[in-house]
Design a protein around this nucleic acid. Structure first.
Lengths: 129, 129
DNA sequence: GTGTATTTGTTCGTATGTATT
DNA sequence: TAATACATACGAACAAATACA
């Protein structure tokens, strides 16, 4: 799995790492029980500090995507088995909220319902390919 | 137009204001040429500092949603007429990126393409009602 | 018109938290 | 742990614009 950091991006580096790992899990590039690189090696590969990678892993753990068991490394969790029903419901609500904000933003820019849904379909096709 | 601030939310206050104003424009609650409340009065209403409101307005101006002409107040812009073609193209790309990230995140949580698109349709229906 | 009070956005400095090394 | 740079939010004071007697 390849992670790319854009130092010019306004998004915090740890968040970029977090997003790309979540995306890799979504695409099946990372599967439950897979081991992630150690914070040291990943930090070395990316040319950043280990604390930054550690923060990304900690966020992913808190969100239920990973296990972190001391020195045995970070392991991809089986989200559906790990997450509580409450957590799943909250995630669904948050997704709806974000989609609504994006839709309203698109409309504020003069976009239409049809153009919004067309983009959504296109991206869903890629994401679930 | 009513704005609500959640101090417990992790999202910065100025961003909350920005999002709600964009949403109001999207819903037609705010129309081009409408005047927004002064930074002082809005800050007073919300119980926050004027700089926080000022930052939200400045962001909205930079994004092309508002005009700010000195002390004559902030005015809602006509985005389609104001924004450059490049800006519109960039916004479209960013929307696609965000939707793909959300779709992948949903999939990483065990969601399906169908459930994702169902939520998207539901929210689009509300946003474009 | 004139003078005063009010309203407005801006400039300065400060405190706190976050991100990263 | 310590140090840094940056982001967020606040407060006091300022000067331009406005309202009004």
């Amino acid at each position: 799995m390849i992670i790319r950091i854009d130092q010019m991006d306004q998004m915090p580096v740890y968040q970029q790492i977090r997003n790309q790992i979540v995306a890799a899990i979504g695409q099946g590039e990372l599967c439950p029980a897979d081991r992630l690189p150690s914070v040291r090696s990943l930090a070395s590969d990316l040319g950043i500090n280990i604390h930054t990678v550690n923060k990304a892993y900690a966020v992913l753990r808190d969100e239920g995507y990973l296990f972190m068991r001391g020195r045995s490394g970070a392991i991809v969790a089986d989200f559906k088995q790990t997450a509580t029903p409450e957590r799943i419901a909250i995630n669904s609500d948050e997704l709806a909220e974000k989609l609504q904000q994006l839709a309203l933003e698109h409309r504020a820019q003069g976009g239409t319902k049809e153009s919004f849904l067309e983009i959504a379909h296109t991206q869903a096709k890629y994401a679930f390919a």
